[in-house]
Amino acid sequence: MTRLLFEKTGKAVWISHLDLMRLFQRAFQRAGLPLTHTHGFNPRPSVSIALPMSVGVESGCELLDFALDGAAVPCEEIRDRLNAALVSGVRILRVYEDGQKLKNLAWLDCCLTLEYDHGVPPEAAGRLRALFSRPSLPVQKKSKNGVTEQDIIPLLKRVELEQAEENTLTLLARVRCQNPALNPMQLLAAVDRYQPELSPDFCRCRRVEVYDENGNVFR
């Protein structure tokens, strides 16, 4: 098993998780790097992405596990050949011969960019800091079984707010990403629910880095 770290930016953020798997399978093929296949009735090339991501989210820390068929290829060569076969916006940063067990993946740093077309409302950073300091913050969560309430505070390690420009506010947060996971966009849902006057006109989301339970970078 080999692992690679890639980023997903630009137009590529609109590619869904399933489509991205297919895109990687074809990129491996184009790069002349044949993948092993699953042993099923309908064999599929074996690639898996650690944390499926919502459409529209940007990332600089995606992990993909794969297994090559045939002779070993040096990691740098895999990276370069894949990058030459990938669409713009999907770029391999590094290839690792091995990796930690995925079950140890625990935390995710993410950055929400809140865009206010008519300027950031006064005191917004402070008011949002206060909001995320509450002891509990239930937000509606849509799942297969319908809508449930999810308290986001236990799944949130820290929140930092910074006004970068006149019209944007950045919210940096460390959220749990497995067992259970918190979708970073739930932070926006909390704003919409409890501070609707601070709801931005648009919000972008970027995954920044992943960590294990102890806060060490996960690879």
């Binding site: 137009k11 590529a12 609109w14 590619i15 869904s16 529209g56 990938l86």
Partner: peptide
């Protein structure tokens, strides 16, 4: 770009394919 999160299969509208 702001329209894209709210529509089904937004990759249909962005181009950028291989």
């Amino acid at each position: 770009q702001r329209l894209l999160p709210a529509v089904q299969k937004p990759a249909r509208y962005t181009g950028g394919e291989w």
